[in-house]
């Protein structure tokens, strides 16, 4: 996936950039409207993350222009939480918005949702042994059979698959299930891992329990 991040706060931009790149996306960064325009003229993107307040203008201005040339989905990053602004942004054609500060997982979820809605996400499958897994749609393909994982299962499998062969602690897995919800305990991880094992039956991938340390996705060599 190719993302354009338009955000003038350098630290925030760097953090988002890092996260996105960790997930394997290609990201360009623009710190102003003008810079963003340069990028848009030279490259094409799957998704634009657009801050509303920029040093040389309003992000919504850019939004209107990208709407005009027909295309790239936009998620607005806004510091405004006023209810009128929320409505006005959607009215002006943003696909979605997220209020700062945000949970990165939520941003990811929204990006996926937008891309799915636009039907524009190209396959980005990860091979898990004989099976193929698409983290953005949650589909697991085993031969002819495709199963759709639930969101938490998807996130868990994605975390394990991206670090295949490495031991993932329960705690880390918990974090990858995002949301610092009180109701998610480490016991819950065991439940989800159990479900995932069932899902992966019939493939040659398996999730090993490493006592006292966590879990590990083992793929045949």
């Amino acid at each position: 996936m190719r993302y354009l991040l338009v955000e003038d706060n350098a630290e925030l931009a760097a953090a988002i950039l890092k996260r996105l790149m960790l997930d394997g996306h290609a990201v360009d960064h623009a710190g102003s409207v003008a810079e963003a325009q340069d990028w848009l003229e030279t490259a094409s993107y799957d998704l634009i993350l657009l801050d509303v307040m920029l040093p040389d203008g309003d992000g919504r201005e850019l939004l209107r222009r990208s709407r005009a040339d027909g295309g790239t989905p936009v998620i607005m990053l806004t510091a405004r939480s006023q209810i009128c602004d929320r409505v006005s942004m959607l009215d002006q054609g943003a696909d979605d918005y997220i209020t700062k500060p945000f949970d990165f997982s939520e941003l990811e979820a929204r990006c996926r949702a937008v891309l799915r809605r636009r039907g524009g996400s190209p396959r980005n499958e990860i091979a898990i042994g004989t099976a193929f897994f698409d983290p953005s749609s949650g589909r697991l393909r085993k031969g002819n059979e495709t199963t759709e994982l639930r969101n938490r299962e998807t996130r868990l499998l994605e975390a394990l698959a991206r670090h295949a062969g490495q031991v993932m602690s329960k705690e880390r897995l918990l974090d990858s299930l995002f949301s610092f919800d009180a109701d998610v305990t480490e016991n819950a991880i065991e439940v989800y891992v159990g479900r995932l094992r069932k899902r992966l039956e019939g493939t040659d991938a398996r999730i090993e329990t490493v006592r006292g340390l966590g879990y590990r996705l083992d793929l045949p060599r």
Binding site: A15, A79, D175
Partner: peptide
């Protein structure tokens, strides 16, 4: 003014949160 104030507060907060999440990883 409110928008500006919110922006001024929320953007660094977002940055803190983002960095924290990264650090958490």
């Amino acid at each position: 003014f409110i928008a500006e104030a919110a922006h001024r507060i929320r953007t660094p907060l977002a940055s803190v949160r983002m960095q924290s999440e990264l650090a958490l990883g």
